[in-house]
């Protein structure tokens, strides 16, 4: 249901502010920037919302005026879909790869090469424990 003309949702306006970059200040949205142009654009957003314009129409209006760089994030369509899909796909692939790597590590035998040496260590430990039990001859030096 469209809001009655003349009334607009300030929260919606602010969320649109954050989706639009200020064309003349490096890396700032019109919500952040304090230059005159940003103030006018904020004003324009509110006027358009008050006239019952939808969010997409507002964004389209500014894109037409200032070019696609005015959008704070590329649209999820066309070639720009790549910007969104690639990182998500890569992170998913990395997690899957990590899972497979872990599973492969789990299947591997737990280092048979080291086993005789571990056994030797244990043997020496138990023998020294025994010695300790008999009066710890080595500990008073």
């Amino acid at each position: 249901m469209p809001p009655p003309p003349g009334v607009f949702d300030e929260a919606e306006a602010q969320s649109i502010d954050r989706m639009l970059m200020c064309p003349i200040c490096p890396g700032e949205s019109i919500d952040q920037s304090q230059v005159e142009l940003a103030k006018q654009m904020r004003q324009r957003v509110r006027e358009m919302l008050a006239q019952g314009t939808t969010r997409q129409q507002v964004l389209d209006f500014f894109v037409e005026r200032y070019g696609p760089t005015v959008l704070a994030a590329p649209p999820k369509s066309g070639l720009n879909l790549l910007a969104w899909v690639l990182p998500v796909a890569l992170v998913a692939a990395a997690l899957a790869g990590g899972f497979l790597a872990l599973r492969a590590m789990r299947r591997g035998n737990p280092e048979p090469v080291l086993d005789p040496y571990l056994a030797a260590v244990d043997a020496r430990l138990s023998s020294s424990n025994l010695a300790e039990g008999q009066g710890r001859p080595d500990n008073n030096g």
């Binding site: 090469v113 080291l114 040496y117 571990l118 030797a120 260590v121 244990d122 430990l125």
Partner: peptide
């Protein structure tokens, strides 16, 4: 520590 000792033993050998 046990692991380290085993590694050292192997290196020694």
């Amino acid at each position: 520590y046990r692991q380290q000792a085993a590694l050292l033993l192997r290196e020694q050998e």
